[in-house]
Amino acid sequence: MDAFQAVVLAAIQGLTEFLPISSSGHLVLPQTLLGWEDQGLAFDVAVHVGSLVAVLWFFRRDVCNLLLAWGSSICGKGHDQDSKLAWYVIIATLPAILAGLVFNDLIETHLRSGYVLAMTTLVWGVVLGAVDRFASHRRQITDIGLGIALFIGFSQALALVPGTSRSGITITAALLVGLNRSDAARFSFLLSMPIIAAAGSYKLLELVQSDTHIAWTYLSIGFVVSAVTAYFCIRVFMNWVERIGMMPFAIYRVILAGIIFAVLAW
C-alpha cells in the first residue's frame, strides 16, 4: 500500500460506512479492477476508529445526554426518554455481537464471495427502495420501544453478510416499523457506535496478537481521511435525508450490484 491507496481506501470507507450503500461492495472494486492488495488488519482498525470518532463527534450532544441519563438510571434515579433510548441502543446491539461471535467463522469461510456480495447489494437495495416508498414514516425516535429496538437489532446482525450494509439494513428495518427518515437514520447512527467500537476492539486484539508490521504513516492517513470524510458524509446525509429519501441510494445499489456482477464475469 502507498499513500495514494491509503487515501482512496480510507475515503471509500468513510463515505460508505454510514450511507446505506455497502462499504464492502465498494472496497472490492479497487482490489478487483486495479489489483490492489487487501488493506490489511492494521489499516482496517485505523479507518474503523476514524469512522467511530466521526459519528461520536457529530452526535456528541446526544451521546453525552444518553450517557448521563443511562448513568442516572443505573443509580436508581428513574428513567426518562434519554435513558430509555440508551438502553434500547444497548439492547439492539446485542444480537449483532452474539451473531458475530457465533457465525463469524462460517461467514468468513462460505460467504466472502463476490457473487454473494453482488447479490446482497442488489436484494437489499431493492428492499430499501420498496420500504422507503411504501412505509408510513409517521413514528418518531421517541416511539421506539423494546420490540422495535430488538427488531432493528436483529436486522443489524444480517450486516455480517458482505454487501448487506449495516446502515442500510438498520435504516430499512427502522423505516419498516414506521419511523420517519431522519429518526431512522439517527437511530441507525447511534446504533453504529457500540458495534463499530466492538468490531474495532476485536480487530485490535487480533492485531496485538499477530506479528503484523505496522506502517504508522499509512495508518495515520487512514484514520484522518476516514474520520473527515465520514463526518461530512453524516452531516450531508442528515441534512438531506428527509428531502431526497432513500430511493437514490436504492437505485445506486442496484447499479453497483450490476457493476460488481460485470466485474466478476469479466
Rank of each mutant, 00 (worst) to 15 (best):
C75F: 11
L205Q: 09
Q156G: 07
L204Y: 15
S182R: 15
S182C: 07
V177K: 00
Q5L: 03
V55A: 11
H26P: 06
L205E: 10
L68Q: 15
A92C: 11
N65R: 14
M246A: 09
G100D: 10
L160V: 11
I169K: 02
T121M: 04
L190F: 10
F18I: 11
S51G: 11
R61V: 13
A159R: 11
Y231F: 15
A69M: 06
K84L: 13
Y252F: 13
I169T: 02
F249Q: 03
F18T: 10
I91D: 10
V263P: 01
K77N: 13
F4E: 11
L52V: 09
W70Y: 14
L33S: 04
W240C: 14
I234E: 09
K203I: 10
S192I: 02
D62C: 08
N104W: 07
A184Y: 06
H110Y: 11
V228Y: 05
L66E: 07
V49R: 08
V55S: 10
G200F: 07
P162H: 06
W36R: 10
H137W: 05
G153A: 10
G145C: 00
L106W: 11
Y231W: 12
R253G: 01
I221N: 07
L98S: 14
I260L: 09
T121C: 05
L98H: 07
V7E: 03
A250L: 00
H79K: 15
L67E: 01
E242S: 12
N65V: 10
L117Q: 01
H48C: 02
F103P: 05
V236S: 13
V161N: 00
S167Q: 09
G129N: 00
F223H: 05
T229I: 06
Q209K: 15
G163E: 03
I74D: 04
R61N: 14
V63P: 04
V254Y: 00
E206C: 12
I214D: 05
N239Q: 14
